[in-house]
Nucleic acid binder design. Sequence first.
DNA 1: TCCCCGTTGTGAAACCTTTCAATCAAGGAT
DNA 2: ATCCTTGATTGAAAGGTTTCACAACGGGGA
Lengths: 346, 346
Amino acid sequence: MSRTAASPRPGRRPSVKDVAERAQVSLGTVSNVLNRPDRVSASTRDRVERAMADLGFVLNESARQLRMGRSNTFAYVMLDATNPFFTDVARGIELAAEKADLSLFLCNSDGRSTREGAHLAHLQQQRVDGILITPVDPDAPELPRIVQQGTPLVVVDRAATSGSFCSVTVDDRLGGRIAIEHLLDQGHTRVAFVGGPDSIGQVRDRYEGACEAWREAGLPDTDLIRVETEALSVQEGHVAGERLAGLPKRKRPSAVFCANDLVALGLLQQVVSSGQRVPEDLAIVGYDDISFAAGAAVPLSSVRQPRQALGRAAAELLIDEVNNPDHEHQQVEFTPELVARTSTLG
Amino acid sequence: MSRTAASPRPGRRPSVKDVAERAQVSLGTVSNVLNRPDRVSASTRDRVERAMADLGFVLNESARQLRMGRSNTFAYVMLDATNPFFTDVARGIELAAEKADLSLFLCNSDGRSTREGAHLAHLQQQRVDGILITPVDPDAPELPRIVQQGTPLVVVDRAATSGSFCSVTVDDRLGGRIAIEHLLDQGHTRVAFVGGPDSIGQVRDRYEGACEAWREAGLPDTDLIRVETEALSVQEGHVAGERLAGLPKRKRPSAVFCANDLVALGLLQQVVSSGQRVPEDLAIVGYDDISFAAGAAVPLSSVRQPRQALGRAAAELLIDEVNNPDHEHQQVEFTPELVARTSTLG
DNA sequence: TCCCCGTTGTGAAACCTTTCAATCAAGGAT
DNA sequence: ATCCTTGATTGAAAGGTTTCACAACGGGGA
């Protein structure tokens, strides 16, 4: 392949100054064409616009930001960009941001604190107007520090512990509770909770909710089995399925509650392919209701979270914080909802 | 909730100047601490660093960029952030970028040209060092224009038509061909191709490859049925399943080749839930081999693309273009590979 | 004819950083 | 005592934009 002729620019890119020169106007006028077109006569405006087109002028956002002190940009630091739950949340944020004429950058921490920290530092230096984040650790001291240094921040899908920012969550304890109550309704008295690691707050809360409901039903603690996974992935669901199959028959649960749908789908696949029937031999309920849940060959019952709404609410809180001097930090909590499908209903 | 005491900053954020003042050094020295720490004595360095910490100094990236003329940032404009294929590509890009000490911003065009255009304009203004993009339309005149205006660009998963940039692709015709050849091997003589809309280049190419293989096998064109969908989603796969079921029995295919895995999974679910067996009644092969494919209750055969490698290669080409004055544009093409699972093997 | 006002256009200052030539101090060699 | 060298520090310029006080111009009213 041959290198195509490079653009004929003389090293530097055209600036407003160049445009001004070519259009025979002052620098300020060019800026006016850009920002207050009404304050400049039609004829000069034309001239300036033609000059911009001829030169291939592209405004330098760094310079503008430097001058203006704001960037009209939000960023969302996701915990796991490959989990459909988070991409849906991102979609909700994006829609709200678009409506408010803000750009949105997505960053992926991939569950690693170091990567998260690097992203945060960079975003702060970029002077984004606000940061949305689903943090690896919501108690990390960086978060309040960032706010304190002047960049507003909203935590998504975890509760704010520090009082210095808003948060938007779904009630994970309640989610755990309704999942278990549903299984109890179906007559199950021996159930496994599959998920982990325990360092993930969402997992802890869902498990606790499950325990509460279990105890209230008067069932013995020992009949709610805990199977801990190393991650919330399809792969780990598979592994968990094998571990369950290894249990002596009488200890085996008749139903499983998975900490998220990825795990549930992995488990489902393992269970079905090993010849068991779902839900007759084993009922399964997942969490998140990602779009693949309904599409599984045994449609998966799941605890639905309002994913897009979650994102939208978070973005709106941030927008308020940026624009409204009387903003007060809020903790918004959504309510999950059980979607019962074949995997628990026979 | 009460508003927590705002940070005690006096309106403005601390700049190097403030740091310099507090540390009793000149402005240039602070910059040296930041950029060439070796060129400043240990004692002053300490003093400066303490001042930075005390003031909560955060470097202003806009100013730096303005001065330096480069941002050390790439961006990837994705076609569909909710499709696992693209998030995996993004992951590959991210890993390569991280290794080269570049930040990566992700943008989602969501298949809409207008959104894509808005993102591109904004990125150009931000002066990102380079753009990776899976375009809605690879022939859009914006792409060469952006390059011509000085921002290098690499097209991902589509071939470059203009000679002004690199591209990284997977051979979609070959992918279509091997999918069909696999089905022919299994003895199928009546097959449907499901996917659309036809405006998507990937869909066209895969279909053409399929046709070629079909003709070479000497089978009549009419026995390769075309079922066009409105999008490449799980939902649309479902719809397509219903349409197939509506065909008179003798016209019904014994196997289906889907343009991507989302469609295949939707179809699979519809087929299974309507009581047919896979692959006995209907064999299914998908495309992309996303992680949910292996995890489907009938594990899905699929044409695997090297997703992460695709992203990595694209990022590396862009890095070369940015750093190497002798860079020559290249079209890199990867080869897809069939992964046979239960959905075609019984 | 003169004054005032509204409309256009101007030019310099400010935003914050990096760079580079120049200065300064101190110590070693002559 | 003087000169050189080395290493540390300085100060000013540059980078592209927006803003704002101001000038220039023309026209309407008195």
